[in-house]
Amino acid sequence: MLTLGIETSCDETSVAVVEDGRKTLSNVIHSQVQLHAGFGGVVPELAARDHLERLPGLLELALERAGARPSDIELIAATRGPGLAGCLLVGTGIAEGLSAAWSVPLTGVNHLWGHMYSAMLAVPDLEPPLLGLVVSGAHSDLVRMPEHGRFEVIGRTRDDAAGEAFDKAARMLGLGYPVGPALDRLARTGDARRQRLPRPSLPGLEYSFSGLKTALLYRLRDLGDADEQTRADLGAAFEESVVESLLEKLDAALTQVPSKEVVVAGGVAANTLLRRRAAEVVGDRARLTMPPLELCTDNAAMIAAAGHFGARHPATVDPSLGWGG
């Protein structure tokens, strides 16, 4: 059974064709990085316009690369939230139109669920129950997935998400948008031991990154004009503190609720240090799945997979949708 996925929640426009929720036949992604680069961040209005202009070409390409005809599609899955309202409306609107044209059912998909389902595309025999860490610009959530289409949040951040913290740190260090890859590169040339930063630690499974952010701000202020190497060292130290804090809680969660399968997914799961350290922390207690980079960024294949496995839901847009929806 083929599912057509459509993802437009933020600054990636993507269309995919997925077979049986497991096999990616095509997953075309257009990144709006260039469009927003001059603004230092995503401009919602520009993003929504660009989704509208890109989707027709991407749709054609996704079908062509999958070798699929519209009549082969049995389900359309579109992201309904969380995300930018205007952007979500474009994706779900086009999906509604295609659904009407092809007489194919449509389901609205939770973007967060999508990140967890990206792991199902990476490892075909992966099945719940799972323990997951979903880290992105807006989320740092520890979730249990007891069965398909059901998620329980067991840990989350009290303030900034991990990606948001990386964002702010990168700005302080003078890096431009998109900051994730830039910070990753900078940190690779630095040494965290030369500029220690505090490691935030809250009781239970909660995160907090705002204190760390303030510590970096004060350190930069105290240093005055930090040279290139010092900035790299600070980048490495900041990255290490965030990563170790994330993994400390994943470690604790794995002890509290033992699970044979662990998934680390989301945009921040592309981070080199996180990928290396997660494997060490999980060790042989569970099988760790970290989807390949193209499945960690926002993409439509994961939306198609989540749409395939989850219960059908109207494609009503909800910009602040949580794990429950």
């Binding site: 929504a48 509208l52 989707l55 027709p56 749709l59 519209p70 205007g86 409306l89 474009v90 994706g91 779900t92 609107g93 086009i94 999906a95 509604e96 139109g97 295609l98 659904s99 009407a100 044209a101 092809w102």
Partner: peptide, 14 residues
């Protein structure tokens, strides 16, 4: 956005 994207999806699909 609702009307334009629905109309576009319908036209593309047909």
């Amino acid at each position: 956005r609702v009307g334009v994207s629905f109309g576009l999806g319908l036209a593309m699909g047909l």
